[in-house]
């Protein structure tokens, strides 16, 4: 395996991924574990766990990790560029196209439809993060009448952050993230 293949594999995987985040996981698993056997299934599971505790997008973390493990630092750079470059080029083309169309009547109406849709998507992101912290099982289970529960520590932290921001308007969210980490550590003792 050489650096070029590594670049191409990650470029292709990034281009095929829509929606970002954990939507990427099955696709990456397919390429990394099954098609190219860069990692074993167990190592891939560790990688997903690692990606949850490191900053940055999971697809990017996966690329850096595989590149580093397989080909060292050069591999890490090449694989990371593999996911980043195609993403960058397409997003830039979209940004330029968007600027051209801004202000037209059709665009104004289209955005009136898209904005509330995004509000729904952001609400879904709240559930996504709560699913592995505030709840003990995915929120969808509650609606489907399956197993569901609340992790009290997660619920306390969630409520604490809301209350803190209600009391101190304009507080930097960094402080409440630090508070969340501290509470996460202390409430489980």
């Amino acid at each position: 395996m050489n650096l070029l293949t590594l670049f191409l594999v990650f470029a292709k995987t990034a281009l095929l991924t829509f929606g970002g985040g954990y939507a990427m996981v099955p696709l990456f698993q397919n390429e990394i574990v099954f098609r190219h056997a860069y990692l074993s299934a167990a190592d891939f599971a560790n990688l997903v766990a690692l990606a949850q505790v490191t900053p940055g997008p999971i697809g990017f973390n996966a690329a850096t990790y595989v590149g580093m493990v397989r080909e060292g630092f050069a591999g890490a750079i090449v694989a990371s560029l593999g996911v980043a470059v195609p993403t960058f080029v397409i997003a830039l083309a979209a940004a330029i196209g968007l600027r051209r169309m801004r202000g037209t009547e059709w665009m104004t109406q289209l955005m009136r439809g898209l904005r509330p849709c995004v509000v729904g998507i952001i609400a879904a992101a709240v559930v996504f993060f709560a699913d592995t912290s505030v709840f003990t099982a995915p929120f969808a289970n509650l609606l489907a009448g399956r197993d569901f529960g609340i992790c009290w520590q997660g619920a306390v932290i969630f409520a604490a952050v809301i209350v803190v921001h209600r009391l101190w308007k304009g507080l930097n969210p960094l402080w409440s993230l630090a508070l969340s980490a501290l509470l996460g550590w202390s409430l489980f003792i």
Partner: peptide, 12 residues
């Protein structure tokens, strides 16, 4: 990290 995820959910 569970704490950070719960806090992130609240911030979002």
């Amino acid at each position: 990290f569970l704490g950070v995820r719960a806090g992130t959910a609240a911030l979002i």
